[in-house]
């Protein structure tokens, strides 16, 4: 899909960072990482225990994207992760809310990881924002609260 060469990317990232915040020094021509300044989103991720981000797109890209992939395109290997971009099951929020709270098969539950507000925010992002999805984003924290497994 998107083969990246990690080594090259690290070096490239290092060079890109060097212009701003990452300082490096050359040893036999190999640039090395000597310090690291995280991006604003990266800074937020580890700013305290649990999931610290609150916006739908941020929750998606820091949690869900690991399986459903950054653009919601899904992935296939020995098993698969379903695409959420262009997924018609997202027309109404109820299905996504249920799956996120209860988990389903290989999809873990996020009931204890995310607050009602965070679940609503990420579902709204799935409905409208992720890929070309453009359903009406109507999930609410109240709805999530009522759907939580007892």
């Amino acid at each position: 899909m998107r083969p990246l060469d990690c080594t090259t990317r690290t070096v490239l990232t290092a060079i890109a960072f060097a212009a701003t915040a990452l300082s490096m020094h050359a040893d036999e021509g190999t640039p090395e990482i000597t310090s690291f300044e995280p991006t604003p989103l990266e800074k937020k991720i580890f700013d305290g225990p649990g999931v610290t981000v609150t916006r739908g797109d941020e929750i998606y890209s820091t949690l869900c994207a690991g399986c459903h992939m950054p653009e919601g395109e899904g992935a296939v290997g020995g098993g698969m992760y379903p695409a959420l971009a262009g997924n018609e099951k997202l027309e109404y929020p109820d299905y996504a809310v249920f799956i996120i709270l209860n988990g389903y098969k290989a999809m873990p539950s996020f009931a204890h990881t995310l607050s009602d507000e965070q679940v609503a925010a990420v579902v709204n992002y799935l409905q409208s924002g992720l890929g070309d999805n453009s359903y009406e984003p109507v999930a609410t924290a109240e709805q999530v609260k009522l759907s939580r497994p007892q």
Partner: peptide
């Protein structure tokens, strides 16, 4: 939470 967050990152 942290395992999910690292999971969502690219290797570099």
């Amino acid at each position: 939470a942290q395992a999910f967050e690292f999971n969502a990152m690219q290797p570099e």
